[in-house]
Simulated scan of single mutants.
Amino acid sequence: MSFRDATPADAAAIDALFRTSFQATFGHLYAAEDLASFLAKFTVEGWAAELADPAFAFRVIEDAEGLAGYCKLGPISLPAEPQGPALELRQLYLLDRAKGSGAAQALMDWALATARARGASELWLSVYIDNHRAKRFYQRYGFEDRGPYAFLVGNHADEDRLMRLAL
């Protein structure tokens, strides 16, 4: 596996990976119309715009089959109350073939180093309340639960947990 910064040319591959990973992990939770409504908010053009925007930072992992995961940092969009300069870990997604490979740790290490390099004193994220594997992963890095957050997928509200790490 190799890691690199993403470019706007990766937009279509990131879009496909996001859709595949999200549906594989969470798709069973939603009515078809809610899932379709949620996924419609994501477009290749939208990804390309974020990839070109210096407020965002993306890192991808590739293997022999192509893109296997990515991580995205950006400005705070969550209803968080940062105490200083902060960034949000917006997404960290892996395809099944990359899970257990150390890719998640490498992407998280990059996210923490990048957030610090950009002057953030806090990193925020949200995680689905029943995604126990992800919650344990973030807790190992020192993220602390900061309360509930309603994450909308179409008209369906999931309970997510806001998590914060002081950098």
Rank of each mutant, 00 (worst) to 15 (best):
E122V: 11
E122M: 04
E122C: 04
E122F: 05
E122P: 09
E122Y: 09
L123V: 13
L123A: 07
W124F: 08
W124N: 10
W124R: 09
W124I: 07
L125S: 05
L125M: 13
S126F: 12
S126H: 09
S126E: 08
S126K: 14
V127P: 01
V127Y: 02
V127T: 04
V127H: 04
Y128I: 12
Y128H: 14
Y128A: 14
Y128M: 13
I129R: 15
I129F: 15
I129G: 15
I129C: 13
I129Y: 14
I129D: 15
I129T: 15
I129N: 15
D130L: 13
D130C: 14
D130F: 14
D130N: 15
D130W: 05
N131I: 04
N131R: 05
N131M: 05
N131H: 06
N131D: 10
H132N: 13
H132I: 15
H132F: 15
H132K: 14
H132M: 14
R133F: 11
R133Q: 15
R133V: 15
A134H: 02
A134V: 05
A134Y: 06
K135F: 11
K135H: 08
K135P: 03
R136W: 01
R136M: 12
R136L: 07
R136P: 01
R136K: 10
R136D: 07
F137R: 01
F137E: 04
F137T: 07
F137W: 01
F137N: 02
Y138F: 00
Y138G: 06
Y138L: 01
Y138W: 02
Q139T: 12
Q139N: 06
Q139G: 12
Q139W: 11
Q139L: 08
Q139A: 11
Q139K: 10
R140Y: 09
R140V: 09
R140L: 07
R140M: 08
R140N: 06
R140K: 15
R140I: 09
R140C: 11
Y141P: 01
Y141F: 01
Y141D: 05
Y141G: 03
Y141Q: 02
Y141M: 00
Y141L: 06
G142W: 05
G142T: 01
G142V: 06
F143N: 04
F143I: 03
F143A: 03
F143K: 00
F143V: 05
E144V: 10
E144Y: 07
E144L: 12
E144A: 10
E144H: 07
D145W: 07
D145L: 07
R146L: 01
R146W: 08
R146G: 02
R146S: 05
G147T: 12
G147P: 01
G147V: 06
G147C: 02
P148K: 13
P148A: 09
P148N: 10
P148F: 11
P148E: 12
Y149R: 13
Y149F: 11
Y149A: 10
Y149K: 11
Y149C: 12
Y149T: 10
A150Y: 06
A150V: 09
A150P: 03
A150R: 12
A150K: 14
F151N: 00
F151V: 03
F151D: 01
F151M: 04
L152Y: 12
L152R: 12
L152S: 09
L152P: 11
L152T: 13
V153E: 02
V153H: 07
V153M: 09
V153I: 07
G154I: 01
G154E: 00
G154Y: 00
G154R: 02
G154A: 00
G154N: 00
